[in-house]
């Protein structure tokens, strides 16, 4: 694994936003993560690839403590994740997360979905939060849906609202856990466009996805995982054209 640190923060000349050092995670007797070590630098876009069950979702969920890791350390923006709830709250409000199943709040309108956390966590006044929310909805292309309920939107629109909801907290890092896997094919591109736009804007992003086109186009680095381990790390060019590991080659031959 030591050979794979080709583009760490040091090399890019930026601070590391996420440092994962030897992270272990068990579900009962099953070890889901085996000493996962990697860094994500500021304004870097990292795409995590791998077959299903390889631990990539588990890893990304450990980063904002939705899952609790049992070995190793995770530090986000210099704050280490421990059982101290104040650290967790601090990290969670700085880290946005987009889920595969959107997880919008079905009983709230789109507007309320977006403004809830800024109003109650960031303590923004209602008017200010709503102005901000409207800007975000314009940015993701659906300002006209503000007063609707999530159940009245298409999957792609829901996922865009979910992205806007995360952005409303003005996070420094965005985590995407298979954001397009639950979408119908014709809706995938509208979500990917929003993500590309975010990446161009300089957001630090970690993306678990199966969209190879997105990975090739947007990623600064690709991390390939299998069976709870990082197998290979590299630039998209290196990864797609000249992978070194056999397991990576096998994976690529199966999907391309």
């Amino acid at each position: 694994m030591t050979a794979n640190m080709s583009a760490s923060g040091m090399e890019l000349g930026r601070a590391d936003m996420i440092v994962s050092d030897g992270v272990d995670k068990w579900y009962g007797d099953f070890q889901a993560l085996k000493g996962v070590t990697a860094q994500v630098a500021e304004r870097e876009v990292v795409v995590v690839l791998g077959p299903s069950g390889s631990g990539k979702s588990t890893w990304i969920r450990c980063i904002n403590r939705l899952e609790v890791h049992q070995g190793g350390t995770i530090a986000v923006d210099g704050v280490e994740l421990t059982n101290d709830t104040r650290n967790i709250d601090k990290i969670r409000s700085d880290v946005g997360m987009v889920f595969q199943q959107f997880n919008l709040f079905p009983h709230l309108t789109v507007m309320d979905n977006i403004t809830l956390a800024p109003r109650w966590v960031r303590k923004q006044p209602k008017a200010e939060a709503e102005t901000k929310a409207m800007e975000l909805l314009e940015r993701v292309g659906i300002p006209e849906q503000a007063a609707k309920f999530p159940g009245q939107l298409s999957g792609g629109q829901q996922q865009r609202v979910a992205i806007a909801r995360s952005l409303a907290m003005e996070p420094r890092i965005m985590l995407f856990d298979e954001p397009t896997s639950a979408l119908d094919p014709e809706m995938i591109s509208e979500v990917l466009e929003v993500m590309k736009d975010l990446a161009r804007g300089g957001m630090t992003m970690m993306v678990v996805t199966h969209e190879m086109g997105f990975a090739r186009e947007v990623a600064d680095r690709i991390i390939f995982m299998e069976s709870g381990e990082i197998v290979e790390v590299g630039t998209p060019e290196h990864f797609f054209t000249n992978p070194t590991e056999d397991r990576t080659k096998l994976f690529l031959s199966q999907i391309l």
């Binding site: 939705l66 969670r92 997360m97 889920f99 919008l104 809830l116 966590v121």
Partner: peptide, 27 residues
């Protein structure tokens, strides 16, 4: 209430009481 609702509320940084009052109980 599905687990995703709890996770989304947690990921936004809501406290447990806020999560209960705004997300869990109404549903």
């Amino acid at each position: 209430i599905r687990r995703g609702q709890f996770e989304a509320a947690d990921a936004l940084g809501l406290t447990t009481s806020q999560r209960t009052a705004f997300i869990v109980l109404p549903q």
